[in-house]
Amino acid sequence: MKMESLYQEIILDHYKHPHGRGLKDPYSGEAHHVNPTCGDELTVRVQLSADGSVVEELSYEGQGCSISQASASVLHDLVAGQPVMDAMAVGDEFQRMIGGRGTVEPDEEVLGDGVAFAGVAKYPARVKCALLGWMAFKDATARAVAGADASTSTEATR
């Protein structure tokens, strides 16, 4: 049945037992994203290493459907502790799969549990749900990097 291809066991598992949920301090970047068509919301925080090269911690809080919340849980698993470059590459691969209308063969090496979301690509109305956390992560990281740059430049001029 089609519905089971959307709601993979892994997704339901992450939905019922989310990883990394609950906002943590300290953090170097935060982003709050909403899906205006349905009202789902998610706040993602990242704590980058001092040199800005590693996502040391990723935490989130939000409300939404099983797809958006499970996706945030998988995001946490795939990104926390990873170099920023690698984390961004995972995000790009995830986005490529989700936006592929079901025609993209996902790279399991890169995506891990994330491949469970392949079925979402066939439901255009749910694509935004699956991407909500990932977009917030990219935004939070960009802010963390910008913040670090700002403080570096402030120090340089001091």
Binding site: K2, M3, G64, C65, S66, R126, C129
Partner: peptide, 19 residues
Amino acid sequence: HPHDVGQVLDDQGVEVRVG
């Protein structure tokens, strides 16, 4: 979540609004 309820309904051909 209402989205998930709507998705299961849609799977049965029942078209409702969620959100």
